[in-house]
Amino acid sequence: MFSRIALFLATNLAVLFLAGIIMSFLGVNPNQMGDLLVMAALFGFGGSLVSLLMSKWLAKRATRAQVITEPRNETERWLLATVQRQAQAAGIGMPEVAVYDAPEINAFATGANRNNALVAVSTGLLRQMQADEAEAVLGHEIAHVANGDMVTMALLQGVLNTFVIVLARVVGGIVDSFLSGNREGGGRGLAYFGIVMVLEMVFGLFATMIAMWFSRRREFRADAGGAQLAGRQKMIAALERLSQNHGQSTLPAQVEAFGIAGGMDQGLRKLFMSHPPLPERIAALRASTAA
């Protein structure tokens, strides 16, 4: 769990650090707020949007998923037929359907366009789940696509990155001015760059918490969407099977947030989880049934 959090943070901090170097090289500082906002937005959204546009290619490459073009067996025929039926019910284009080799029960959806997405399932899911449970998992992933979750996550991350870049430099400038006693010429000392780097790490940590909070909320919505597409009891049964067989995910970090399975950790770790604990998701579905 912590290794994936570290990778997520490192990726965002690398973007912010690179942005800081280039912005410093170009002479952008907190006193040039217009330039700062433009540059921050370019770097903040640039990485997120490029990642979104490349998400299908990256996911297939990272998981070595094999897209089903011509079904080779009854299982693959069932997969294609189920995804096609659910996509039509959700009002989206037919996604690519793929299978990747992994022992755990998992699946994910990604793509920059709700009419040109990718839905992939693990071999572990096909081996260990009943057809009704697998149908619910596919419905959950189709709901992610229909809700536009991939695009929304990319835009949210872009906004958060932009605010981190701007706030770190504005607050860093204030702190540096205070420490230096407003040095002549208004230039920035070496301490300023160190302060900005520390602030980017701190603000980046809080930005990650916000992104993961949103990610957890969208999982509840996708569960509800899966219940509508496949049936509420099937969705509950699928989550119960996940809770019984849950282990460490082998999904790469760049697509793990879009998988069906989530962590079971509690306490402070929960703030960095992309998925709510499975018992909470099951309870939410049962509560909606009783309502």
Rank of each mutant, 00 (worst) to 15 (best):
F2L: 10
S3N: 11
I5W: 14
L7R: 12
F8E: 01
F8L: 14
T11N: 08
A14Q: 09
V15M: 12
L16V: 12
I21R: 12
S24H: 10
S24T: 15
L26S: 14
G27F: 11
P30V: 01
Q32A: 13
L36I: 14
V38D: 04
A40H: 01
A41D: 01
A41T: 15
F45Y: 15
L49H: 06
V50N: 08
V50P: 06
S51A: 15
S55N: 03
K56I: 10
K56C: 04
A59N: 02
R61A: 14
R64V: 10
P71R: 00
R72I: 09
E74S: 11
L79S: 13
L79F: 08
A81W: 07
A81P: 03
A87P: 01
G91R: 11
G91I: 10
I92M: 13
I92L: 06
E96Y: 14
E104C: 09
I105N: 02
A109W: 05
A109F: 15
T110Q: 12
T110K: 08
N113I: 12
R114D: 02
N116S: 09
L118V: 11
M129I: 06
Q130C: 07
A131Y: 05
E133F: 10
E135Q: 11
A136G: 12
L138I: 10
E141F: 00
E141G: 13
I142T: 00
N147M: 00
V151S: 00
T162D: 05
V166M: 13
R169A: 06
R169T: 06
V171G: 03
G173E: 08
V175K: 00
S177C: 10
S177V: 02
L179I: 08
S180D: 14
G181W: 11
R183M: 12
R183C: 07
L190Q: 13
A191W: 07
Y192M: 12
Y192T: 08
V198E: 10
L199Y: 10
F203Q: 00
L205K: 04
A207Q: 02
R218G: 03
D223R: 06
G225V: 03
A230H: 02
A230V: 04
R232W: 01
K234I: 03
A237L: 11
A237E: 14
N245M: 11
H246M: 09
G247Y: 08
L251H: 03
L251R: 00
A253F: 11
A257N: 08
A261F: 04
D265N: 09
L268I: 15
L271C: 05
H275G: 12
L278Q: 10
P279M: 15
R281M: 06
I282F: 06
A283L: 02
A283E: 06
R286H: 09
A287V: 09
A290I: 05
A290N: 15
A291P: 07
